[in-house]
């Protein structure tokens, strides 16, 4: 597989504390990769290593097949979780400065900034100072600064925190657009909805260790348990429930519906048994609801973390 970024056996210690313990990751080119983990798991340390803000104690990081080099800064765009801007500096001037630090020429930076400011309809902010803007407005400016130099690898640490739903959506669309244009995106978050929505691949870091990683579909498949959520319309719920309980592995179901159904989950031995189950159910009652239970990333996250606690 074509990987843009590969980390091999990365260790990082601060004194006696180990922040990263033998972490290896591969981020496929053109993917949206979600880096998940509870607070303090080591995500930010890992991102800082990719950005060469801190150096790993052991292990190697490769970008585009070559070991990470200081000049690679120009190919990476990083939106840190702890982000801010100079309060008393004007928006335009500040954006220009940060863009030029990434290696853009003044004219180039100005032109691209104009494009982005028009796109996000924030042109009138150019001469305003950051302290006159709201937090969400400042976040938009930071987003523009992160993507301005068209990096191959974009790293977003909790990108949606601080955005209202409208702007969060706007930024989400921009991120998807950037992926279309060929960028690879590394996401760090503990907000599972956005992972579910955007990511193709995930990795889970907990207490400095990588617990799992891979394509999100495969991981989900691995976590399915051939369980089906069922809603049945019948005259005598209790009789039916007792009957099913004697034949299958039955559990409670928590989905919402407007029908006054008998709700339950049934686990079958193998996936192919589902048709048999459905056939049986059809013979017993009217089937209003029949869905395979697919674990959400949130479920996987909680399950894995508690298992390793």
């Amino acid at each position: 597989m074509d990987n843009l970024l590969v980390a091999e056996n990365v260790y990082k210690r601060f004194g006696k504390f180990t922040a990263l313990n033998d972490v290896s990751l591969s981020i496929p080119r053109g993917s949206i990769f979600g880096l998940l983990g509870p607070n303090g798991a080591g995500k930010t340390t890992f991102l800082r290593i990719i950005n060469q803000i801190t150096m790993p104690d052991e292990g190697k990081v490769y970008l585009d097949g070559k070991p990470l080099h200081p000049d690679d800064i120009a190919h990476i765009g990083y939106l840190p979780e702890e982000r801010g801007l100079y309060k008393s500096m004007k928006v335009g001037e500040q954006a220009l400065y940060l863009a030029r630090l990434k290696g853009l020429s003044k004219a180039e930076a100005k032109e691209r900034l104009k494009y982005w400011f028009e796109k996000l309809e924030i042109e009138e902010w150019w001469d305003k100072k950051i302290q006159e803007l709201s937090k969400g407005m400042a976040q938009k400016v930071q987003f523009v600064i992160t993507v301005l130099h068209r990096p191959k690898l974009l790293i977003f640490d909790e990108p949606f925190s601080g955005f209202d739903p409208v702007n969060a959506n706007l930024i989400k669309d921009e991120i998807l657009q950037l992926r279309e244009e060929g960028a690879t995106i590394l996401f760090s978050t503990h907000r599972m909805e956005s992972v579910e929505e955007l990511c193709d691949y995930i990795a889970l870091i907990h207490k400095s260790n990588k617990l799992l990683d891979g394509p999100i579909n495969e991981i989900k498949k691995a976590y399915t348990s051939n369980t089906f959520e069922i809603g049945l319309e019948t005259a005598d719920k209790n009789a039916l429930y007792a009957d099913l309980q004697s034949k299958f592995e039955v559990g409670p179901a928590k989905y919402k519906s407007i029908q006054d159904d008998l709700k339950l989950t049934i686990k079958v031995g193998e996936k192919d048994d589902s048709n048999e189950l459905l056939r049986y159910l059809l013979s017993q009652a009217k089937v209003n609801h029949f869905v395979e239970v697919i674990p959400s990333v949130n479920d996987i996250f909680i399950k894995t973390v508690t298992q390793n606690a």
Partner: peptide, 18 residues
Amino acid sequence: IEEKTNRIIEIIVSSVKP
């Protein structure tokens, strides 16, 4: 201190060496 409290520092050190 200003760069630290403004939280701009991490954005800058991702572009230049401290």
